[in-house]
Design a protein around this nucleic acid. Structure first.
Ligand SMILES: [Zn+2]
Ligand SMILES: [Zn+2]
Length: 394
DNA sequence: TCGGTCGGACTTTAAACGAT
DNA sequence: TCGTTTAAAGTCCGACCGAG
């Protein structure tokens, strides 16, 4: 189940902080992020783990208007690394994505890339359950003119004192390693992947793909003809705009949290390029591309979720999702109006918190995921600048 | 058709455990 | 004290559906 996965991931990310890695990570194509990435500010560029921005819509950034990569490039041969890149690992013949011979069994689809979340979504995004980013104001808030209310929420403190049963020790290679049975983790041991060269981070656990690391600082790739690089003065390689690479796979969103995340198929990490060739700002819908919206062709369509929707106000999932929380009466910030309505909270919210900037585009009328049960009401999506427990709003 | 809503899968984080 | 395990807390994908 997902439990396994989540377990795996959690254990893999046991270190709270991402190791300080060279920031030379290719940024997620601006397609979904309105082009201006990385965001200004002290934040490190976030990493994105999405394999394909949006399989269903054509990538506006694609110089050629080439069809966007909607299909996973499983079958593509590994392209030569573009200038400024280095394949850190050879491609193991068994690695998914490696060209396979006609007789060979079809390659397994690459493991689903991990979703990368921002550490803290802004209240607006959180309430709308939309993707946020590290910048403040975030992309989405900017789009909706909510920049002013784009603030981090306040992470609710974790409950303490909760007793737990004894832990099940995951037999770690104690005494050799003959503890295979049951040890689900055992077979996840990264194969014998050669360690990356000094100066490079280890590939994320479980990924033996050919990693492509950006050249180390100061590394100046030799010119094709073997001559010293023309502009390589002071060891600083010239800004490498790599030529136009066919959207595939060079445009492939590489990041994957490079320092820690898995690498999707053609794991190329382009050298940090100036933002985006033509950072076309794309509406938030990072997740739900406007075009595809409903019919969004998802990378993992198989995931399909069904849902019988309850009108808001009714007891709907949101509420149920919060039941735990509701159970302990999260009255941290009950709105003054003690009996926060249950039905029509949205409307209410909208009425009481008109968008601060009427001149803005489509005022997001979302009132946030209301929690009728707690009555904490919809998050003042664009009303209250003061931070609040996020979940209280969802 | 577009764009907002929200169910629920998934990720992150930190407290509890347990070994040393 | 430190590494591991576990689950609470939080993020956000993507189906669904109302409005235009
Ligand atoms: Zn946001
Ligand atoms: Zn925001």
């Amino acid at each position: 189940m997902s439990a396994d996965q989540s377990k795996a991931s959690s254990s893999a990310s046991s270190s709270p902080q991402e190791p300080p890695q060279p920031p030379a990570v290719a940024h997620y194509p601006p397609a979904a992020y309105g082009g201006h990435y990385p965001p200004p500010g002290p934040y490190p560029p976030p990493f994105y783990a999405y394999p394909v921005p949006d399989p269903s819509h054509h990538d506006p950034n694609n110089p050629n208007g080439a069809p966007s990569q909607s299909v996973a490039p499983f079958f593509m041969a590994v392209p030569p690394p573009p200038p400024g890149m280095v394949y850190a690992y050879p491609v193991p013949p068994t690695a998914p994505g490696y060209p396979f011979a006609p007789g060979m069994p079809a390659p397994q689809p690459p493991p689903k890339p991990k979703r990368k979340q921002v550490k803290m979504a802004c209240t607006n995004c959180a309430s709308a359950c939309k993707r946020c980013d590290e910048a403040r104001p975030c992309e989405r808030c900017i789009k909706y003119g909510l920049a002013e209310t784009c603030v981090d929420g306040v992470r609710k403190e974790r409950k303490k004192g909760i007793k737990r049963g004894p832990y099940k020790r995951k037999n770690r290679a104690t005494s050799g390693e003959g503890s295979a049975e049951g040890g689900e983790a055992t077979n996840e041991q990264p194969a014998a992947v050669p360690p990356p060269p000094a100066g490079y981070p280890m590939p994320p656990e479980g990924y033996s793909f050919p990693y492509v690391y950006p050249p180390p600082m100061g590394y100046v790739p030799a010119a094709p003809d073997g001559q010293p690089h023309p502009e390589g003065a002071n060891g600083a390689p010239p800004a490498m705009h790599h030529p136009f690479y066919p959207s595939y796979p060079a445009m492939y969103p590489t990041p994957y949290g490079y320092p820690g995340g898995p690498m999707p198929y053609p794991p190329l990490i382009p050298t940090p390029i100036a933002a985006s060739p033509n950072g076309t700002a794309k509406p938030d819908s990072a997740s739900a591309p406007p075009t595809a919206n409903g019919a969004s062709v998802s990378a993992d369509a198989g995931k399909g979720k069904k849902r019988s929707r309850a009108k808001n106000g009714e007891e709907s999932g949101r509420a149920s999702k919060k039941t735990k929380e509701a159970a302990q009466v999260d009255v941290q910030q009950q709105p003054p109006n003690g009996d926060s309505g249950v039905a029509g909270v949205d409307q209410l919210e909208k009425d009481q918190h008109p968008p601060p900037q009427p001149q803005q585009p489509p005022p997001p009328s979302y009132a946030g995921h209301v929690d009728p049960s707690t009555g904490s009401g919809p998050v003042a999506a664009f009303g209250g600048p003061e931070p609040r427990p996020l979940m209280a709003a969802m």
